[in-house]
Computed example of a mutant assay.
Amino acid sequence: MEFSWIFSYWPLLLSGARQTLLLLVISVGFGFLLAIALAFAQVSGGPAVRLLARAYCTFFRGTPLLIQLWLLYYGVGSLLPMIPGLRQSLFWPILREGFFFAAVSFTLNYAAYEAEVLRGALLGVPKGELEAGRAFGMSRFTLIRRIWLPRAIRMALPTIAGEVVMQLKATPLAFTVTVMDLYAVAFKVRQDTLLVYEPLLVVTVFYLALTALIARAFRLMEAQVPLRR
């Protein structure tokens, strides 16, 4: 095994790790907020809203993430330059990068999976707790903010942790749209040095360590907020 190349490539490795983490944080953060809206749309929305939310989740859960990513990058991305004035706008430096399309694609995909998790958790909250909140005179917004949503999230924490790890493992797909994430750096090292296993082992160690940290963080959250029955 030869690992001396790490001393030459460590700035690029750090940059790739930062890109991977940034993709994970953006997609999980914004995706979770979208998932909450989609979950409530399915649980308590009107017929039309419920149908649209279900269609969204069915589409993004029923098609491969790689195809969604390529549809955005090669499809929508090829149409953006045709919009008058967009190339001269402040947004073009962001919109022309593969990172933007990867972040959007990962966010939309994560939201669909997480919405189904939260939908099940929302339906699993005991009705007695919601009725007790209404009996205290809570408004619908207060009831959601203080009882329904926190209770559902706590019940779904183990599944949410698994979804975050799955999202982490999906980030190497960003390499296919020119994003220089950690896997892309490993690929470059392999091209430059003709080493195959060593760069992949470094990437493996990074993902294992980050997975362990995520699992530990969610276990701490579960311990701090015990589930009452």
Rank of each mutant, 00 (worst) to 15 (best):
L72F: 02
F99T: 05
F100N: 03
A53Y: 12
L66R: 03
A102P: 01
G85W: 08
L108H: 08
P81C: 07
V76L: 15
L69T: 03
P64Q: 05
G46Q: 04
P84S: 03
Y113M: 13
L52P: 09
G98A: 06
T107Y: 08
A35S: 03
T63C: 07
L38A: 05
L65A: 04
R119D: 10
A103K: 02
G45K: 03
F59G: 06
L66E: 07
L79N: 06
M82C: 11
V104G: 01
F101H: 10
E116S: 04
L34G: 11
G75Y: 06
L95G: 00
F106V: 09
R119F: 09
R61S: 12
S78P: 01
V117R: 07
A39Q: 02
V49I: 15
L79K: 07
A111Y: 07
A53L: 05
T107W: 07
P81N: 11
F91P: 07
V43P: 01
Q68R: 01
V104F: 13
E116N: 09
V49S: 15
R87N: 06
P93Y: 11
W92L: 07
E97S: 13
L90R: 11
P93Q: 11
R54C: 09
E97L: 15
A103S: 01
A53I: 12
A55E: 06
R87M: 13
Q88H: 14
F101K: 02
P84I: 13
R119Y: 09
I67M: 15
L71Y: 06
S105M: 13
T58C: 10
V76M: 14
G62H: 01
F101D: 12
S78W: 06
L86R: 06
L33P: 06
P81I: 15
T63Q: 00
L80S: 02
L86T: 02
F100C: 13
A111F: 10
R119S: 13
L51R: 11
L118I: 13
S89Y: 09
I83K: 03
A111I: 12
L80N: 02
I36N: 05
A115C: 12
Y56E: 08
T107V: 00
L38N: 14
G98H: 01
I67K: 04
T107Q: 04
V104H: 01
T63P: 12
F99W: 11
L33S: 14
Q42N: 15
L34Y: 00
S89Q: 09
R50L: 14
